[in-house]
Each structure stands twice: as structure tokens, then as C-alpha cells.
Design a protein around this nucleic acid. Sequence first.
DNA 1: GGGATTTATTTCGCACGCGAACTATCTATG
DNA 2: CATAGATAGTTCGCGTGCGAAATAAATCCC
Lengths: 146, 146
Amino acid sequence: MSPRREHRLVFLLNVAQRRLQRWMAARTPHSGVTAAQSGLLFVLGQRDGVLMGEAGAALDLGPPGISGLVDRMTAANLIERRADPDDGRAWRLWLTPAGRAAMALSKARLADVNARLTQGFTEAEIDVVARWLVTMQSRFPKGEDE
Amino acid sequence: MSPRREHRLVFLLNVAQRRLQRWMAARTPHSGVTAAQSGLLFVLGQRDGVLMGEAGAALDLGPPGISGLVDRMTAANLIERRADPDDGRAWRLWLTPAGRAAMALSKARLADVNARLTQGFTEAEIDVVARWLVTMQSRFPKGEDE
DNA sequence: GGGATTTATTTCGCACGCGAACTATCTATG
DNA sequence: CATAGATAGTTCGCGTGCGAAATAAATCCC
């Protein structure tokens, strides 16, 4: 029984996430590229020149979140903001050479993280975990849907 | 077998955590008690008068984390800081009546969250998830152990 | 065409939690 | 006893991301 085990899921999720973030932050070989920042680097690695809103959607960030992330990464010279030629409101994001290099380094770190995230679990178990995490997205939606 | 699915675990964990936090924050019936704050309320509900460091350990927070949390909750009149009679450096934390009431309300919200966290998954699957989350704690330790 | 509405992004204030450095107290050791 | 070291908390600056409100450009509709 122990309702306590279930009670703990909220907490366990929180702790696991923070531990992972902290671990990644501490192991940033290249100058200060954080986990969130590598996320954006990967998005741009696949689709350079996306709109900020698209990048935000890909990372599940709202407007203020992506805006701040872009600010910091622009200041760090990892990406560039260039006006969209067709839409005066929009900005497109482009990797700088430094950003491209940082992305390559981030991939190595990600490989290490992946090993740690799956080690000791069967593929079926990892599938359960992934399915659970994905399900939580629809279970705790952004809007205030019931 | 898509290495991409594994790649996503970092991201999925991050998103699930943020979605849950956001959802809880939006559904705070009582004045502004956040998820982190309910965590401390529950700790005090079980052991009123703990040292700040003990509370931090229970919530996996470092000194600055628990210190700030206590600051905000003290300002909100949810808890009280009282000097430890035996140790001039230490402070013990106590629930205020308002804090005790907020804790009761938080429990209702937690029940709702728990339902959403487990609904649609078998007990065995939830066990896998819980085991995975716990394992991640040792996999991404606080110290810089390799 | 022009006013209302939608859309892209920014700004503000906030909560959270980290690492590093600091202060104050307690404890151990010579 | 004095002093060195350990321990409890605080403070600072930072990155992250949210909600709400503002700005500016695009679009829709009469």
C-alpha cells in the first residue's frame, strides 16, 4: 500500500530533474553552455533559422522563456537574432560558428547523460518511463483545461 | 530502435517536471503556496521544529535553497524561524496556524496530482518509474563523483 | 481604406535553486 | 586557554521559466 510511495512521485520527479540539471551544469567542458542552452543549440542544429516562437514550441517554452534564453545565448555569441524578411514582428535564430562548435561538444555530453539515464534498465522499462513522461505532458497541460 | 527516443529522456524529464510545477502553481487555491513550499509544509507536518539543514536535506536542497524558501514562507507567515536553544548557529522551523491550514489544503491538491500521476499506469509500471527516478538520484550525485 | 483583432516578441516582477564566498558559532586539539 | 577547523546559515550573482501586461506588426472585416 503506502500512499507514501505515490506521494513521493512529485518529489522524485523534481529531485531527479534538478539532480540532472546540476550534474550537467557542473560538467560543462566548454564555456558555460547549460542544459537549456544545448536544447536550443540542438533545435537550431536541425533547423537553423527557425522563428523564436517555433524554437520555444520545440522546447516547450513560453515567450518569456525563449526570449530570455535567446538573450543569454546571443550575449554569449552562440546564436544570432536576424529579422525575418517577410514579417516585421518576427526574428529568426541562427547558429554562430561558436554555437555550432558548442553544439558538437554538447553532443558528447549528451551521450554520457544518455548512458546514465538508461543504464541498468531494460529497453522495455525505459519505454515505460518515456511513455509515462510523455503522458504527463497531456496530463498537466498548459492551458487551464480541467 | 531510434537513439532519438533515448536522447529525448533528458528533455522529457525536464518538460514533465515543468508542466507539473506549472500546473500546481496555477491550481493554488490558497494564497500562493507553491509546490516547493508545500514540500516544506509536509516536512514540518511530520517533524515540526526541524533544523533548517535537516529540512533542506529532506527536500534535497542546498543551504541557499532552503534559506530562500524559508525566507519567502516566513514572509508569507506560513512558518516561523526560532533560534535553537542549544546551538547559537542553528534555527528551527515551526508551522504557524496559517501554515498548518495551508498544509491541509495542499494535501487535497496533492491527492489530485497523485491521481494524475498514476492514472492509466499499472502499479508495476509506476514502480518502474519510481525506481528509475530514485536511481537517477544516485546516477547524478551531488558531489562531483565520477 | 481603416479600425478591430490576432500574432510575435519583449519587459517586468516573481519563485526557484545553484555555486561561491562569507559570518558566526561550536568543537577539538595542542 | 587559545586557536584551528568544522558546521549552520546567509548573501550574492546567476540561469531558468512563469504569468501578466506592453509593444509592434500583420491580418481580417466592414
